[in-house]
Structure formats: C-alpha cells, structure tokens
Amino acid sequence: MPAESLWLIVLGCAAATFVWRALGVVVVRRIDPQGGFFQWVTCVSYAMVAGLIFRMIIMPESDLAAVSLTIRIAAVVIAFAAYYLFKRRLVAGVVAGGLSLSAMAAWIG
C-alpha cells in the first residue's frame, strides 16, 4: 500500500477513536454525576473492561492461545496468591504470574 494510504489509515483510525472520546465529553456535560444514568454507564464500563480482560486470559487471540487454558488459569491463581501474600503489592502478583506462566509453558508446554 502507498505511504499516503497508510497515513490516511493511521489518522483515520485516530480520528475514529477520538469520536468516542469526544462523545463521552459531550454526554458527560449533560448528565448528573450522582444520577442513575451515570451509575449505569459506570457499570457498563466495568463490565466491558472486565470482559476484555477475561477474554484476553480465557480466549486469547495472541500467541497465548498456544499455552493451555489450565496453565493460564494456574498462573492467574498464583498471581492472586502472591498478591495477597505480599500485602496487595501489584508487582508481586504480576511478576509471580508472568514468571510462573513462562516456566509452565517452558516445562509443560
């Protein structure tokens, strides 16, 4: 593809993403942050973000798909165990989870 088309794609995608952000800014000016609609939108955000994360772990489209589901779930359990063991330090959970996934993938496959 010529460079002009690729630039058009990049800038088009940036603009198309910005539309959602701008729409959010416009919508939020018209709603009451204490009201039911705001609470509902907040719940929608949490559900979307949690769903996205859950999908990345359970049904990954990345190279992670080559690692068995059992290993992925075991690594999540190890991560949470380390997180609570080390007084809710995110670093502890993330390092333990990432390393245990790498180790299990290397040894078990």
Binding site: C13, A16, T17, V27
Partner: peptide, 25 residues
C-alpha cells in the same frame, strides 16, 4: 479497504465512550 479498517478500529475502541463518561466526573 481504508473505510473498513477505520470502521473496525473505531468499533474496537468504542469502549472509550462509557469510559470517558464514568471517568471525567
């Protein structure tokens, strides 16, 4: 095609609407 790519990207990032609304206040 370019239009299809831009549309797919936009759809994949639509979560920014509720995220901005819940975040800005």
């Amino acid at each position: 095609g370019i239009a299809a790519i831009v549309f797919a990207c936009s759809l994949a990032n639509a979560r920014f609407l509720p995220m901005v609304v819940s975040f800005v206040p």
